[in-house]
Simulated assay, not measured.
Amino acid sequence: MLVDSHCHLDFPDFAEDLDGIVARARAAGIGRMVSISTRVRRHDALLAIAERYDDVVCSVGTHPHHVAEETDVTLDELLARAAHPKVVAIGEAGLDYFYDYGPRDLQAASFLIHVDAARKSGLPLVIHTREADADMQRMLEEEAAKGPFVAVLHCYTGGRELALRAVELGHSIGFTGIVTFKKSDALRALAAELPADRILVETDAPYLAPGKFRGKRNEPAYVVETARVLAETRGVTPEAFAAQTTENFFRLFSKTPRPVEAAA
């Protein structure tokens, strides 16, 4: 079994084919899919998808691209929404200095609210960080000093220093299809170096289809290809890698119910 720890099933790309997307994921051995929130103001629609499928769960949060739209999101609202049985994580939230769609001060302020929500709820924080290694590392260190919380730096494309420091602080690193691209040698080297118990696999679907499917709309079933490349990179069998990353997922996303066969 594998888990797609980060996808966006509420995005319009999937609206006409959601049953097919989920069916193909199941056929590929994907036991759980986490559909990640990008706008709290659209969370009800995301939650409806999670409630529709037994093997889909979700998060709640504001993506850094949308912080200017959601300056009214409060800690109390995040905690209230996080109490729902299908909400297993906070985020995605963080810093994106590549696109800079959200003012950086608002990105930072929103991120800190999400960190606090993760800390108070006990749920993992899904972190988006792009071209912001120094500020993200500083904020993670400062927040760690205030009290424990756990997180995954999803769709990781940052530097080695941030990744290793995040792991030291107790966090995990999520890899997408980017790790399968021909020019991703440095990312594969990092994936080979990280502790086995801190790696997650994800699609970030509908984006970033792995090399075998490059140019197509990504979907949760394709996480199998990313896992295959990562297993090869780390010198382990696909079966061992699947077992390790699935266990990593359920340890971090501990509110997510395990499939009956996995729990036995």
Rank of each mutant, 00 (worst) to 15 (best):
L194G: 07
K183E: 12
P206L: 01
L164T: 10
T237A: 08
A163D: 11
S184G: 09
Y222L: 11
A189P: 09
I127S: 08
A144W: 03
G235N: 10
P238E: 13
A166I: 13
L123E: 02
D185H: 12
A231R: 08
L230G: 01
Q244R: 15
A227C: 07
G211I: 02
Y222T: 04
V115R: 14
R138L: 14
V236S: 10
R214V: 04
G174V: 03
V115D: 10
A240Q: 11
L230S: 00
G215R: 03
P206G: 06
L164D: 11
T245M: 15
V201I: 15
G235V: 11
L140I: 06
G170P: 11
R198E: 13
R188M: 08
S184K: 00
A191T: 06
A132I: 07
Q244C: 09
K212E: 07
T237W: 07
R188P: 12
I113T: 14
A231W: 09
S172H: 15
V150Q: 15
K183M: 09
E193R: 03
H154W: 09
L187Y: 08
L187S: 05
K182C: 13
T203Y: 12
H154P: 10
V224N: 07
P148A: 12
R130Y: 01
V152F: 12
C155V: 13
A196L: 15
G235Y: 14
G174F: 01
L140A: 05
A151N: 14
